[in-house]
Amino acid sequence: MGFFHQVLPGIGTKYELETESGDIISVIFMPNGRVQLYTQPAQCPDCYAADLNPMESRRLGNVLTGAIMEAEEEGVEIAFSALADLRIVVHTYIIRDQLSGKSITDLDIRSRTGVTILAVSRDGKNTVNPRPDFRFMSGDAVVVIGESDQIRVFEQEFME
């Protein structure tokens, strides 16, 4: 299995992968963000091509790395097939009045539910990895990360 890349002047960068079975896959990145993908099966002179926009190429990349994203209304679930099917959920919630003024330590979020508060968004400003003494205010948008069971516990404890 060989893998190499080269610059194509005036076009972009080309990555070429030869699989064990002798198929050749080429990926060409162009400066305008578009990507062209070619597959050339072994023993076949023809090339099959696809022209992808940046969004499409990211989606294809996600599928290939095994991180299949199932978009929910306010969260995504990412499955890492390489890590014994580890499934991680990232979810957003809006803080309601009864949690207002309480800190992360007061609520003891990590030990009670297992989830981690990843970020808080308040009035258009984001705080990533808030400190334990961070105090919530009503209307804050929080991003939590955890396994789906832990997320469910978090919803029951704090969001209902």
Partner: peptide, 11 residues
């Protein structure tokens, strides 16, 4: 170059 891109021949 535009022929190679437009006609998908870069492979």
């Amino acid at each position: 170059l535009s022929s190679l891109i437009d006609n998908r021949k870069l492979g």
